[in-house]
Nucleic acid binder design. Structure first.
Lengths: 151, 151
DNA sequence: CTGCTTGCAAATAGTTTGCACGTTC
DNA sequence: GAACGTGCAAACTATTTGCAAGCAG
């Protein structure tokens, strides 16, 4: 069985969570990508197929899925959060200017983690907030680019 | 003249911004500390002295002060932002568990910056979002501590 | 006096919740 | 059929905005 949707559904059942239409639909949308979508993005897509599924249900579903570790969310900007499947842990580099998001593996942060741990006893944990900066295209140009690295 | 409040006021004028009661009051509260306060915290303190100063004015004042570089804000958790005087650039380590905030100098992030820069062409820039993890006390204990490193 | 600032009320964005009904196991 | 999940409307939190009146330079 290598149907990713079915795998996720199995996972739900394994964790003792009911496999409802809403949960299926949300997982479908997340699997289809793009990899990082806001609750609202997801709700819009979900309700184009299942119009009766309400935004608040999407929020509750996302909460549930996050609770069992199937997905995660990050705050990329002011206000909205985006959700993504909980594959390998990664951090998000968000460009100040064009808003593009680049995912980088957590290992890149290991040296920092060691330093913080030695000097402050602090241990990096979640990638809940994005790392802000300037992406290469914006650093090099003055024109307005709207590239979305997002995936 | 080493009165910090007066220095800040001079700075306002130098930047061509009017020195109003609201701006004075907000600067006073920020100078008195704690170093990181939410708009609401600030408004509460401000209005205990100047009851006519409205929350929306505090927001507008904070925006103005941020515009001239006198202060900065960071998102420490879900929702609320905290404002602090724009002294030396630093990052914020926020504990997942007890919410304590530790400031660390930006230099700590230089090696990471180099790596990101080489591998992804990405340049760290703002400390707009906090770095989440576990502080030493929470890492070592299972009891609920409510320490606030905050200053 | 002229325009930047402010008070207030109302709007907004994003998310959460109470409650009665519907669905899954 | 019991327990959990969902639709809807309404509440909430943090922040922003329009407008008429107020104050700084």
């Amino acid at each position: 069985m290598d149907n990713p949707l079915e795998n996720q559904i199995q996972e739900l059942k394994r964790k003792g969570v009911k496999a409802t239409v809403a949960r299926r639909a949300v997982l479908e949308v997340l699997l289809e990508g793009p990899s990082h979508q806001s609750a609202d993005d997801i709700a819009t897509k979900v309700s184009s197929r299942y119009p009766e599924i309400h935004l608040s249900t999407v929020y509750r579903t996302l909460e549930t899925l996050e609770g069992i570790g199937a997905i995660d969310h990050v705050h990329l900007g002011h206000g909205r959060a985006v959700y993504h499947l909980g594959d390998e842990p990664h951090q998000h580099l968000v460009c100040d200017r064009c808003g593009s998001v680049t995912e980088v593996p957590n290992e890149i942060f290991s040296p920092l983690n060691e330093t913080l741990s030695k000097r402050y006893g602090f241990h990096l944990r979640r990638n809940h907030f994005a790392v802000l900066g300037r992406c290469s295209s914006c650093e090099n140009s003055t024109s307005q680019t709207s590239v979305r690295t997002y995936g």
